[in-house]
């Protein structure tokens, strides 16, 4: 049963490769282009293009979903398998990470943080399969940053909208415009950081590949016929760059995006005001119940 999930997980990545092979036109030589647009849906305000990055993103989501189902299928309390051990390790690591960085109140954030971490890491690593990495498209990363921005604002408003509005006037009301700008700079900088790192890595890789093929053409010009055109220097050398830009940088950016999400959400949350508000609400509730009880007592 569980093997079906593993097959489905691999299939969704294979589907991404198949879609790329079948529908994306092969580029002449090496060029730097954005995501390929498959088709556009007519919309009232602006047409909605369905691009490679959206399709890859959804297929990666399905891949992660089936991988999670594979890891968590057939859980047992004793004689646990390696699969269950891996699943437990992931859950425990993320829960500990969230607990140490956000505190006890935000313990329920662990699944969200793990989802962002996994989706971002898998998206960046999908470039190892030759796919267009969805994280090198600002629309995808901008969507995630917007989600985080909504979360930050929600938790800032948790202690009442008045306290949220008053926080813009800190430390002096004169700085309110700057506070508003810095409020909006948070998601923008998060999106640009992730997208810029992944995109710059792929651009540098392409430039190095082009440079190496030109260099090998110059060096091996004396070879006869087709042999002279073959880019010998492109064998193996770009892989060294790929280790840094795809493996290290991709995983690091995923980790940083998740860490920043955690620190922004828990940092913006006014814990003291929230506790005071909760306490006041409980007192009011107790007083109301006391009044109701005394009325009932009088009535009977």
């Amino acid at each position: 049963m569980s093997i079906i999930f593993l097959i489905l997980s691999v299939l969704s990545f294979a589907a991404a490769i198949a879609i790329k092979v079948m529908f994306v036109p092969a580029s002449q030589g090496i060029d730097i282009a954005g995501a390929h647009i498959f088709f556009t849906i007519k919309m009232p305000v602006q047409d909605l293009p369905i691009t490679e990055s959206q399709v890859n993103s959804w297929l990666i989501i399905f891949g992660i979903l089936f991988l999670c189902l594979f890891l968590t299928s057939g859980l047992k309390t004793r004689d646990i398998s390696v699969r269950q051990l891996v699943a437990e390790w992931i859950v425990e690591t993320v829960t500990n990470l969230v607990k140490t960085n956000m505190g006890e109140f935000f313990e329920g954030f662990a699944p969200f943080v793990a989802a962002i971490l996994g989706l971002s890491a898998f998206s960046s690593l999908s470039s190892l399969l030759g796919l267009f990495p969805p994280t090198s498209d600002i629309n995808i990363v901008g969507g995630w940053a917007l989600l985080v921005f909504i979360l930050i604002t929600y938790y800032k408003m948790k202690a009442g909208p008045l306290i949220y509005l008053r926080s813009f006037g800190q430390p002096v009301p004169l700085l309110a415009p700057l506070n508003i700008i810095s409020e909006f700079a948070t998601p923008v900088s998060m999106a640009f950081r992730h997208y810029g790192n992944v995109l710059s890595g792929s651009i540098i890789s392409v430039l190095v590949a082009v440079g190496l093929s030109e260099l090998s053409k110059m060096l091996f010009r004396f070879l006869p016929g087709v042999l002279a055109d073959f880019p010998y220097l492109r064998i193996g050398i770009p892989a060294v760059l790929s280790v840094y830009f795809d493996l290290f940088s991709g995983c690091l950016q995923a980790f940083i995006f998740a860490m920043l999400t955690m620190s922004y959400v828990s940092g913006g949350f006014p814990a003291e005001e929230y506790a005071a508000r909760k306490k006041k609400r409980e007192q009011r509730k107790a007083a109301r119940e006391a009044v109701l009880a005394s009325n009932r007592h009088k009535g009977s």
Partner: peptide
Amino acid sequence: AIAETTGLYALV
């Protein structure tokens, strides 16, 4: 990563 932000703005 945070110090890198200004450089990435320039890159974009």
